[in-house]
Write a protein that binds this DNA or RNA. Structure first.
Lengths: 229, 229
DNA sequence: ACCGTTACATGACAGTGTTATGCATAACAC
DNA sequence: GTGTTATGCATAACACTGTCATGTAACGGT
């Protein structure tokens, strides 16, 4: 009879919790924002469901973020492992960009002030965010194993890479490149290229890997556009 | 008698406009947020001053942002030009980080959704933001002129560099590195190092320039801490 | 001195997140 | 099956936000 077992889920609709998260995620994607009242109107309930199930909007947003990281991780890990480790790493990062452009508001929740919310969260939340980062580290490690790169601290290298793609993503999402008439694909390629060379690869090999990865990315973009149609 | 000259500033306090911007910037720095009512309470006025002078909070925020870019630019350009162009470039970027850490909320306004506000703004606003970017391009050009780097498109290289430092800055400002127990100075150094090598410099020369720039940055940090005391 | 314009205070409106209150319904004990 | 308990949720209110219509007071030009 401890305090934990005394709170069984006794709801009439046991799936309401998931339904709230789904609706919140959908509102975030379609309208760019989610308020307690807008959510309640969509669900046909009152705003109290947010507080009985999550205690407030913060926790609900955190759940949406957690689900976002899960989807993000599975989508990023879909990339195959070939004999060109650098191309695989680049493909991974092109998928990163594709996800962010498809779900801009979700990306903002995940990597905006949301990351700070993880700080005081339970370790499971922290691990959810770190798992996608660990996935990036695996790709980097593969490049080192393939003797393409020479890295002493893989984690630090991962943080540098992540900073680059994250920074470019946020700049692109704010519409910077469009407003100054610049091509974001070109600067993103520049990041990947310079980073790969900076990590030890030959310029020519990096260029080859880039075109391979770019070819895959264009194909994936087309596949996504086709499935959306 | 055109529409522009028919709006002379007839206020009792002609400096009120600047005073509002200053107070807003100060509230942003000290409290992290600025509301119309909080601002009015601080000024001893009503919230209407915001609307008569700026038409709304958006335009006021834009003015704070514009002033932020001006301060940012002058501070970044304080770095001397020596015979080590790569070290100068790195010093520039350490100053970039120092400014962002000292004025986190201002940085958020400048490079967050604020950048999108520039999109529809007048070209003067866009130029204010781009001027700091042009300043970065000059440092890059110096590295190319010194035969340290080999870059065909300086602008694209600048976008790549900016993505890296901006991404790292936002990650650090959200408290990511602190929450996972990582050293942000190390990963920032990694970005500078890998980028410099990736842009064509020798690894050894880059390492020397990094320690030079780091030495300058530590000295500037101490000077700032001393002046704040 | 007058008139018109302008700046600003007051108060209201529509939003937001949050919460105290109350009720109906579900689950449990017998 | 009945009585009790407690849980889920609706209602309504509070404090906060940005915004604006109205009214007033003060200023500048004539």
């Amino acid at each position: 009879m401890d305090i934990l077992s005394s709170v069984p889920p006794r709801s009439a609709d046991p799936h309401l919790r998931d339904k709230i998260i789904n609706t919140a995620a959908q509102l975030l994607a379609t309208e760019g924002a989610v308020s307690a009242r807008r959510l309640a109107r969509e669900l046909g309930t009152s705003t109290m469901v947010v507080y009985t199930h999550f205690g407030g909007m913060d926790e609900l947003t955190r759940q949406v973020m957690r689900r976002g990281f899960a989807d993000f991780g599975t989508e990023l890990d879909r990339g195959a492992v070939t004999d060109d480790a650098v191309a695989d790493w680049m493909t991974y990062l092109w998928s990163y960009r594709r996800f962010a452009l498809r779900e801009p508001h979700l990306y903002g929740v995940m990597f905006g002030p949301g990351l700070a919310a993880f700080r005081l969260g339970d370790p499971a939340d922290l691990e959810a965010a770190r798992s996608t980062f660990v996935s990036l580290l695996r790709r980097i490690h593969a490049c080192v194993n393939a003797a393409r790169w020479e890295v002493d601290d893989v984690t630090t290298a991962g943080e540098a890479v992540w900073s680059g793609v994250h920074g470019h993503t946020t700049l692109e999402l704010t519409g910077f490149f469009g407003s100054v008439g610049r091509d974001p694909v070109r600067s993103y390629s520049e990041i990947l290229t310079r980073m790969s060379i900076g990590l030890g690869d030959h310029a020519l090999a990096t260029a080859r890997s880039l075109s391979t990865a770019r070819r895959r990315a264009v194909r994936a973009d087309r596949a996504e556009a086709a499935s959306a149609r």
